[in-house]
């Protein structure tokens, strides 16, 4: 039976924890809104990019000597996994879900005798994968210094990936991130970046919005050569934005649970505290009464 003082201390400490989780929940809620707006605002660019690529890619796809970004390097020996996670923990299963998806993917490839290289974006992903895949991790891109995610940040990662491709360091590149479905659900997703998965040109696009009959300046190949690298950065940017929103969503849910748990715990402890206090008073009374009787 813990003493009354111990119980008092326990209650005080749980209350302090509850205050922290409550504050974190509110901060996450505020950040979530901003992250969601950013993800929303970036959508038009990615959508139009997809549309143009879909139309353009179809025409160039069949040609010989097309860019490796479009048709691949012709081999699938070496895989590069770009794993985007958060820099901080305390956000429920967010980081471990992404890491788990990346790990199963990597394990499957290793079983098939492929080579796997992992590029971590965000410290938490590295921490999670370091245990059993540490020899495969080639580098960590630290996003700690990044306050508000800009296109520049994604562009840097994109440039890095493209440089590696030019040096022939991998054949296929896949990006792992968490897709923001709603505040309550975030879905870890694998997206193949290289060779690119061209979005299908939808029916409505092939109508009046079609690029058939377009004039190209300078020409198709050159436009595509410029477009494809930018598409990599755009996809990474989208992934990072989704990730940012997911992280805040996951943290908000996790902290909401933590706050509620702390509340339950405080109730239980208070009940126990009051019971022990009353028991002690009763005990003291009995002592006094039996003392008086003995006289």
């Amino acid at each position: 039976m813990p003493s009354l003082k111990d119980l008092r201390n326990r209650i005080a400490s749980v209350k302090a924890t509850q205050k922290i989780t409550k504050a974190m929940q509110m901060v996450a809620a505020a950040k979530l809104r901003r992250a969601q707006e950013a993800a929303e605002a970036a959508r038009p660019y990615a959508e139009r990019m997809d549309k143009v690529l879909a139309n353009l890619g179809e025409r160039v796809n069949a040609q010989e000597g097309a860019s490796p970004l479009l048709v691949g390097t012709g081999s699938d020996k070496v895989h590069l996994l770009v794993v985007a996670t958060a820099e901080r923990g305390l956000c429920g299963g967010f980081n471990s879900n992404i890491a788990r998806l990346a790990r199963t993917h990597a394990k499957r490839l290793l079983d098939q005798g492929k080579m796997v290289k992992i590029l971590c974006v965000g410290r938490k992903g590295r921490d999670a994968l370091r245990r059993d895949l540490s020899s495969n991790i080639i580098d960590l891109i630290d996003m700690k210094a990044v306050k508000t995610l800009g296109f520049e940040d994604a562009d840097k990662i994109g440039a890095r990936v493209l440089e590696m491709l030019d040096n022939g360091e991998f054949d296929i590149c896949t990006l792992f991130f968490s897709e923001f479905k709603s505040i309550l659900t975030q879905e870890p997703t694998a997206l193949q970046l290289i060779p690119v998965n061209l979005p299908e040109a939808s029916e409505s696009d092939t109508g009046q919005g079609s690029l058939a009959g377009y004039e190209y300046e300078p020409d198709e190949d050159e436009i595509l050569a410029e477009l494809l690298p930018r598409n990599i950065s755009t996809q990474i940017y989208r992934g990072l934005l989704e990730n940012a929103a997911s992280e805040q969503g996951a943290r908000m849910t996790a902290m909401d649970n933590a706050t509620r748990n702390a509340g339950d715990m405080i109730d239980d402890l208070t009940l126990l505290y009051n019971r022990s206090r009353q028991a002690q008073i009763t005990k003291e009374l009995i002592e006094i009464v039996s003392g008086a009787e003995a006289l």
Partner: peptide, 24 residues
């Protein structure tokens, strides 16, 4: 006329003319 940057949609409105700095 729509002007889009990776971060957001900057302009989307009817215009009379636009001079575009094309690479050619």
């Amino acid at each position: 006329f729509e002007l889009v940057s990776p971060e957001r949609l900057l302009i989307s409105e009817p215009v009379e003319s636009v001079v575009v700095p094309g690479s050619e």
